[in-house]
């Protein structure tokens, strides 16, 4: 068994993808497992496509080789497909089902693809888990917790080299105390969403 775990986190600038990667990295340190995280900053953040990678265990590189991700979690469906090269048949791809239409569609005449086609293609290349993270986040009390819903979902697919409690505690350590309850709901909502698939 390889003692390397590679997680790809993708989405749209503003969805909290970097925050999620940071929390996942901190949880890994708390679990006493070696970790290396790569992020996108600067110009890449203004509503653009965002990708972060988190590698755990016996790793030297923060970047993931093609076809070697254990999981891809995406806050937007087509962003999951955009980075599908990191997936193999065994990769668990978890995505929110709610599209965020890029301005290039309205302005540049580009086309947003049929979602069913997108899911079909992801499913043909990896194990797809679809969740309505936006709704779970809304029901939890704040749509900005969508990234926490995604982390909950990740914790439920059995790829992390540590217990989900550690991730949950790290989340609570990294959000203001008054938002603890909302984040708890979001995290558990993510776990339940995977369990109910």
């Amino acid at each position: 068994m390889s003692s390397k775990t590679s997680i790809v986190l993708t989405g749209v600038g503003g969805h909290g993808v970097i925050t999620a990667a940071n929390i996942l990295g901190k949880a890994t340190v708390n679990a006493d497992v070696n970790v290396y995280v790569s992020e996108v900053h600067g110009m890449a953040q203004r509503g653009g496509s965002v990708i972060c990678t988190v590698r755990m265990g016996d790793v030297s590189s923060p970047l993931v080789a093609s076809g070697t991700a254990d999981a891809i979690i995406s806050t937007e469906p087509i962003e999951a497909l955009r980075y599908i090269r990191y997936a193999s048949k065994n990769t668990k791809v978890i995505t929110d089902v709610n599209p965020v239409i890029p301005f290039t569609v309205a302005v540049g005449g580009e086309e947003y693809p049929n979602l069913e086609e997108v899911f079909k293609e992801i499913n043909s290349r990896a194990k797809l888990y679809k969740i309505d993270a936006l709704k779970i986040a809304e029901d939890s009390g704040a749509i900005i917790t969508k990234n926490i819903v995604m982390l909950g979902a990740l914790a439920a697919v059995d790829v992390l080299p540590f217990k989900s409690d550690i991730l949950f505690e790290t989340i609570l350590d990294n959000v203001p105390t008054k938002y603890g309850k909302i984040n708890e709901k979001a995290f558990k909502g993510g776990i339940d969403a995977i369990k109910s698939i």
Binding site: G13, G47, I78, R82, T104, G108, E111, P113, E121
Partner: peptide
């Protein structure tokens, strides 16, 4: 991937 995806540059 076989589907053409719209680009998502920063804006």
């Amino acid at each position: 991937y076989k589907i053409k995806l719209p680009s998502r540059p920063p804006t």
